[in-house]
């Protein structure tokens, strides 16, 4: 307010005696929408967290809890370190590791494959390069769920069930990634290719020395998307892994809720604790790479 007074003394001079504090309803409306939206996103997480601090009995009889209970540490500890499941072999740490392997394997695999594909399509005079691209692109119309039976058949035939390879490899071909990298590569100035040709960089050197460093913000973006996508996979891991040693967090949550026999009460608190843990890595990844985004955008002019 101070600098407004400085710059426009004429306007201030007249109404100084009666300060008009009109409420800007537009602004209030905007904020209301934003606040409601945030609540809509945050309240469920809050509920999950609070519920994670209660005993299964409380949750079972009274439902989700709004206030902090006294079982928080116990529930988290049990969720992470107590062997559970049908065979009593898998604990939270194991599931966390499995999820990590799946998420990172997914993201890295997809980035590598789609960068290679886009590099071939954009920079080499292949016959039918455009056709190849559109064929890759149309696979967007065939998500995993559509081809899940043949995919399972192939993996099972190769004896890859209950392996990380079987979990990751069938899903790493990515039309989305290829498309994004293709668009990005096409925006890289032609002269850079020519300059590096004169500088004696062959296709491999150009790819490693020039293209990958230039793509790092793009890689970060796709890594985020693909990591979260891989992390949240449920259907495919359920199908391809039967050993509990390969369970991921997302599956583990269900497992905990399910393991009641006869009259015992499902460990709601532990399940909620596990849900919180399952939420954390994607959040951290986004926060970490967001930093990178901004850096990449402000530091270089490409």
């Amino acid at each position: 307010m101070a600098d407004i007074t400085d710059t426009t003394p004429a306007i201030i001079a007249a109404p100084a005696s009666k300060p008009t504090r009109r409420i800007k309803w537009g602004l209030v409306g905007d904020h209301a929408i934003l606040i409601l939206g945030s609540l809509f996103m945050v309240v469920p997480v809050f509920l999950v967290f609070m519920t994670a601090s209660h005993t299964p009995v409380t949750v079972h009889t009274e439902g989700m809890q709004w206030w902090l209970g006294d079982q928080l540490a116990e529930n988290f500890h049990a969720a992470m370190f107590e062997k559970g499941g049908f065979t009593d072999t898998v604990d939270g740490m194991r599931m966390l590791m499995n999820s990590m392997i799946l998420g990172i394997g997914f993201a890295v695999g997809k980035i590598i494959i789609s960068m290679f594909a886009a590099y071939a399509i954009v920079y080499f005079r292949l016959k039918f390069a455009t056709l190849a691209f559109w064929i890759i692109f149309t696979t967007l119309l065939l998500p995993l769920e559509v081809r899940i039976l043949p995919s399972y058949e192939v993996i099972q035939g190769m004896g890859l069930t209950n392996t990380y390879t079987g979990l990751i490899v069938p899903l790493i071909a990515s039309a989305t990634g290829t498309f994004f990298f293709r668009q990005f590569f096409r925006s890289v100035p032609e002269e850079l290719v020519e300059a590096s040709r004169i500088d004696g960089a062959g296709p491999v050197k150009f790819f490693i020395d020039i293209l990958i460093p230039l793509s790092r913000t793009m890689i970060a973006a796709i890594f985020i998307i693909m990591f979260v996508f891989g992390w949240n996979q449920y259907l495919w891991p359920t199908l391809i892994t039967t050993e509990e040693g390969f369970f991921t967090l997302v599956r583990g949550i269900r497992q905990i809720v399910q393991t009641y026999t006869d009259s015992s009460i499902p460990e709601h608190g532990q399940a909620m604790a596990l849900a919180i843990i399952a939420m954390l890595p994607p959040v951290l990844i986004v926060i970490f790479f967001q930093n990178w985004f901004v850096k990449g955008l402000t530091e270089s002019d490409k």
Binding site: E191, A195, I210, R216, D301, K302
Partner: peptide, 11 residues
């Protein structure tokens, strides 16, 4: 060769 837009490697 020197290019019109310099073609320097930005990174």
């Amino acid at each position: 060769m020197v290019f019109q837009n310099y073609a320097l490697y930005p990174h």
